[in-house]
Structure formats: structure tokens, C-alpha cells
Amino acid sequence: MSILAANEEKPLLQVRNLKKYFPITNSLGNVTGQVKAVNNVSFEMKEGETFGLVGESGCGKSTTGRTIMRLVEPTEGEAIYRGKDIYRLKGNELMSIRREMQMVFQDPYSSLNPRKRIGHILEETLKIHHIGNKKERMERVMEMLNRVGFQSEQYYRYPHEFSGGQRQRIGLARALMVNPNLIICDEPVSALDVSIQSQVLNLLEEIQEEFKLSYLFVSHDLSVVRHISDRIGVMYLGELVEEAETDELYGNPLHPYTQALLSAVPVPNPAVKRERITLKGEVPSPLNPPSGCVFHPRCPHATEICKQKVPVKKMVAKNHAVACHLYV
């Protein structure tokens, strides 16, 4: 069980010891190594909650999201959605659970088929899940288009006629077509300009309230994650190193990596002069991650034990878990 399970509400999604290793093959097709993209990640989401996953590129946050959707199959571990392990489902059961989980992708340019009309793209989701007849489906598409701020005549437009922000709203409408409970948002605003980003973030919040949605929000942007999430998990090199409620995490970051990450974000206020914790070196390759704590080669507080023993995630304050030897 994840250590945050002390809540009386039944969790919507429990991810337990999730692992995803990608094999490395040489030119003859023999496996020569493994990239540990996601390594032993466990967390829980409650109904109606937004759980943010942050980290730098290559930390495995997107792979975690995709593995939960089963867009990539996990190497090991469980993801229990309302009592059912997603990875054990087949056929109709899998289909019905996919109806409840949808995804919004990062790149609004490559995630919509350029040869299909917007109406068609949205309707396809309904067709796949055999929902309604032709007329009902069209009505539903119109309703969704209006909900995310388009006119009905845009039903017949093609994706190239829309700007990045508009396409991202179409992507969101597509996810909403089948009335899901959980939407996995993979960097939904990182390709957008600030003024457009705020439009999409506000829409995500409105829709969450209206449709009682839960979001798994994957992003590298710490300010955006702070704005939208109730709880946040910080990932580094495939591992979840810290997990806490948003205000607690930003007010009292415990893991040295989280501290460095937060101090590195440029603040749009020249009057603020902060002590920046500059990390030495670079993120090691996930091909052969460091022994012990994966962060120890760059950690300013690393000691001998960090090189040898993998730290276990521990609850150190109310709903605040951290995997670090500094906190015993």
C-alpha cells in the first residue's frame, strides 16, 4: 500500500510499484541493457483530485502517465482503478475502463489527424465505444464544441485552421466526449504562449468542477503545476522522490532535489533576490543509474549511506512523504 492511504475516502487510482524498463538492443536485436524509465513508482489519487507529476526531461513522468493509460505496457507493478487492476483487464473490461480514462497530449499539432475534420475527430471516440446513433453523436459533438468555446460551424473545419491553444481545447473536448472520470494531461500547456496557457488552464479548472473530473497532470513547469494541483509528486530519474500536498511541498520542500528544483525557477519579479541552489553536473543516464539514492552524485548533502542504500519513501509529516536518508 502507498503510504498516503490513511485517508478514509476510497482512492480512485492506486499505482503500486510501477516499473517500466525499455530494452536496449544492439544491431543484431540482442538485448544489451535496460533503460529504467519508471522505477518503483507508487502513489494514489482520490476522486476529484488533481495530482501533479513534476520533474525534468527524462525523469519518467510522461512514461508513468502513458503506462497508466496502457499506451505502453508496464514491466511490473499494479495500477488499481476503482478496485480493478488495469493491467489484468482484457477485451470488453479494458474497453470500458478506457472509457473512464482519457488523455490530453502535449503537442497540439501532432495529436489531431490533419486529414480529418474536427467533428469527425471528436465523433470517432464515440464510434469506438459504440455510443449513440449518428444523430445523437453529432449532437454530442456540437455540445462539446460549444462547451470548450467553439461555434457549431467549426464542426467542418480541419485542424490546420486552428491555432495551438484552440487545438488543445479540441484535444480536451475529445477527451471529454465519453464522460471520463480521470483525464491524464501530459504537458497540456507547455507548447502554448502565456496568454493562451492561462485560457487553457482556466478551462481545465472549470471543466473539472462541472464534470467532476480527476486529473493526473504531468508537467515540467513548476508554476503551472502549483496552480492546478492539489497534491504533487516530484520525480527524478524514474523515481518518485517526494510527495506532498501542494502548499506543503512549496512551503516546505524536504528532498534536496525538490529544494534545488524550486530554487532554480526564475521568478518574474526583479525585486526578489533568492539564494539559488545550483546543482553540479547533469542528470545521469537512466541506462546505468547511480547506486543507492539516484540523486547522490549531485546532492549537496550526500553521505556514505546514500551511495550504498536505496532510500525508502517515508512519511515525515502529515501527507508528506520523501525518499531520502536525511529524514529518518
Binding site: 496568454s195 492561462s198 508554476s223 502549483r226 496552480h227 492546478i228 502548499d247 525557477v265 521568478v267 518574474p268
Partner: peptide, 13 residues
Amino acid sequence: SIPKLTGDRLEKL
């Protein structure tokens, strides 16, 4: 319109 790292975060952008 930029989300902030400090201050009230529940306010709409």
C-alpha cells in the same frame, strides 16, 4: 496571466 510560485494559487488566472 503567469501562474506564481508564491501567494494565492486558488485565484483564477
